[in-house]
Nucleic acid binder design. Structure first.
Length: 135
DNA sequence: GCCAACGTTGGC
DNA sequence: GCCAACGTTGGC
């Protein structure tokens, strides 16, 4: 099983919205690196849900429930979506400053390339973030 | 609100 | 194929 991080501007699509929708298709990704990560996602994988903009924190988790398929919002076959399902809201969201403070997390795409909207997360990074969210 | 980082476009 | 110009994202 692999771990991922997906990013959303809360004014565009918030985690609260994700929770009330229960399930959604992750559309609108128009970046090849992000797209390639989406193509690697497998059913049952977990993704951290990050709020960019004013929030700047990891607020919870979603699960990949359907692997990539053509993005229905465009005719261009370059772009794909996956289906994600609401999984869990963190008791203590993990903010970007805390992430940057941790040496273990300093190699994360989130830290290295803040503009990448979908990225891979290593198991040790995922475990640490979950631990921070629970403490 | 500013600006750095990154991606894309288009002229040569 | 290079690179300048421009647009967008997102942290601060």
């Amino acid at each position: 099983m692999n771990y991922w991080l997906i990013k959303s501007e809360p004014h565009t699509y918030s985690f609260e919205q994700m929770k009330s929708d229960k399930k959604t298709l992750w559309d609108g990704v128009r970046n090849y690196q992000a797209r390639n990560f989406m193509k690697e996602m497998k059913k049952g994988d977990i993704a951290l849900f990050y709020h960019s903009g004013k929030d700047r924190q990891v607020v919870g988790e979603v699960e990949i429930v359907k692997e990539h398929y053509q993005d229905p919002t465009t005719e261009d076959s370059n772009w794909v979506v996956v289906d994600v399902k609401y999984k869990k809201t963190f008791e203590n969201p993990v903010n970007l400053a805390e992430i940057k403070d941790r040496k273990t997390l300093s190699e994360m795409h989130l830290v290295r390339n803040s503009r990448l909207s979908v990225s891979a997360v290593k198991k040790k990074e995922y475990d640490m973030i979950v631990k921070m969210a629970e403490s």
